[in-house]
Amino acid sequence: MPISEPEAILSVQDLHAGYGRIRVLHGVELVVRTGEVVALLGPNGAGKTTLLSAISGLLPHEAGSIRFGGRDMAGAGPRETAAAGLVHVIEGHRVFTQVTVLDNLLLAGYGLPRAERNQYVEEALEFFPEIAAKRHERGGALSGGQQQMLAVAQGLVRRPKLLMLDEPSAGLSPVLVDRVLSVVAALRQRGVSVLLVEQLIEKALAVSDRVYALVQGKVALAAPTGTEGLARKLEAAYFGMEPAK
């Protein structure tokens, strides 16, 4: 019987994935509901990036199922998932440095009819007036923070139903982190779901409805952000034991 609840836009079940011989994910279970912001936390090497890559089809998974918007995404590559409205913004603000900001965004809409593409690009730029002003500059001329905004904006061009952001704060100053994460809140208001991988736990929790902690390729904790003593539980999940005193 359908385990996923009707409002679950993404449901991941018993997902196993890895690189060649190296297994990284060992049976991950995860659900994101429509209009919900979910933070995905976990120590280094826990498999967060791997999980996002498996969901977006960048990395084929070995076992388990991924359902998005009621569709089974088995065998879907990044093109198919993006077209279905499941967009993955990879870590490290890897925008294309040799083409302009505008072209970066147009590329995100590759394959869409021209009129729609232009319209969606303008919509995405509305979220980031900072980079809209630099639309004719090369991607390589932007600062790290602006590149990150551009990367997020690229993700928005497809009008995603679910946006997966991988460490959007990495390498940014605190002010810029808040700026980027404010977009997450704005998206939530528009009914877009967000799956957010973050190192900055407090900032992530501030914008999220629920949190998953991934430790050694498994979900160690799943809880609403309002849960009592969440910080202690997270600490225990991260270190694998209670403090020594």
């Binding site: 120590p43 190192q199 736990i201 407090e202 910080a231 600490e235 403090p243 020594a244 005193k245």
Partner: peptide, 18 residues
């Protein structure tokens, strides 16, 4: 020593990213 480091507040916050 491990126990000292484990109880260190800054370590926990660096790890948890707070």
């Amino acid at each position: 020593r491990p126990a000292e480091v484990r109880a260190h507040k800054e370590v926990i916050s660096a790890y948890l990213g707070a």
